[in-house]
Amino acid sequence: MDVLDEIVLTGLTVFGRHGVYDHERENGQEFTIDLRLRMPLNDAAASDDVADTVHYGELAEKVAEVVAGEPVNLIETLAERIADVALTDPRVRSVTVTVHKPHAPIPLTFSDVAVTVHRARQRSAEEASR
């Protein structure tokens, strides 16, 4: 059985210009990102070397670049782009990304709007047979 541990990063807050309305693109707003990476961490634990794991500081910077970068209409699209970034590291087997948009243009009282996507790496036949 494949053991999957987790690295969790929550509350990464980045200014972006995402949304379907012009004023969202013009004024921008803060988005908060939560990530949950599933991967084996036994090599990193044994070596005590950051090279054997996902450097969560570097990952946070890459995610921040996506959020602060090219605007998209939907936070669903933004979540998908962030998941793609997390899965570029071949050790990451799956990722859960939540994008929070607490200042969404809703004319009612609310605390948060969020979208969560779950994405997994497609395993090759060789990896599945191990």
Results as ranks from 00 to 15, higher is better:
1 M>C: 01
2 D>W: 08
6 E>G: 04
9 L>F: 00
10 T>L: 00
11 G>P: 12
11 G>W: 05
11 G>L: 02
12 L>P: 09
13 T>V: 11
15 F>P: 00
15 F>Y: 14
18 H>Q: 08
19 G>H: 11
19 G>T: 00
20 V>G: 14
20 V>I: 14
21 Y>A: 12
22 D>E: 15
22 D>Y: 01
23 H>D: 07
24 E>Y: 09
24 E>I: 00
28 G>V: 00
28 G>K: 00
30 E>T: 04
31 F>Y: 15
31 F>P: 06
33 I>S: 03
33 I>L: 06
35 L>S: 03
36 R>H: 05
37 L>F: 01
38 R>C: 14
38 R>I: 00
38 R>Y: 12
39 M>T: 11
39 M>N: 02
40 P>N: 15
41 L>F: 13
41 L>A: 09
41 L>H: 08
43 D>H: 13
44 A>R: 09
44 A>Q: 09
44 A>G: 15
45 A>C: 08
46 A>L: 14
46 A>K: 14
48 D>Y: 13
48 D>W: 09
49 D>I: 06
49 D>K: 04
50 V>H: 03
54 V>G: 12
55 H>R: 02
55 H>P: 05
57 G>N: 01
57 G>E: 06
57 G>Q: 01
58 E>A: 15
59 L>N: 01
61 E>Q: 14
62 K>I: 00
67 V>T: 05
68 A>N: 14
69 G>L: 05
69 G>M: 03
70 E>F: 06
70 E>Y: 10
71 P>M: 12
72 V>S: 13
72 V>H: 11
74 L>I: 04
76 E>K: 09
76 E>C: 10
76 E>N: 10
76 E>A: 08
77 T>Q: 14
77 T>L: 07
78 L>C: 07
78 L>P: 02
79 A>I: 03
80 E>H: 13
81 R>W: 06
81 R>A: 02
81 R>I: 09
82 I>Y: 05
82 I>L: 05
82 I>D: 02
85 V>Q: 03
85 V>W: 02
86 A>E: 02
86 A>H: 07
87 L>A: 07
87 L>D: 02
88 T>K: 12
88 T>L: 12
88 T>V: 07
88 T>D: 10
89 D>N: 14
90 P>D: 14
90 P>T: 13
90 P>L: 06
91 R>Q: 07
91 R>T: 10
92 V>L: 05
93 R>A: 13
94 S>G: 14
95 V>W: 00
96 T>V: 10
100 H>A: 02
100 H>F: 07
101 K>R: 13
101 K>P: 07
102 P>Q: 01
103 H>K: 05
103 H>F: 05
104 A>L: 04
104 A>V: 05
106 I>L: 15
106 I>Y: 10
106 I>H: 09
107 P>N: 05
108 L>P: 02
108 L>Q: 13
108 L>T: 12
109 T>P: 10
109 T>R: 15
110 F>Q: 09
113 V>Q: 05
113 V>W: 08
114 A>Q: 08
115 V>Y: 15
115 V>F: 15
116 T>I: 02
117 V>D: 02
118 H>Y: 10
118 H>W: 04
118 H>R: 13
118 H>N: 11
122 Q>G: 06
122 Q>N: 04
122 Q>F: 04
126 E>I: 11
127 E>T: 07
128 A>M: 13
128 A>F: 01
129 S>G: 00
129 S>Q: 13
129 S>K: 10
130 R>S: 13
130 R>P: 11
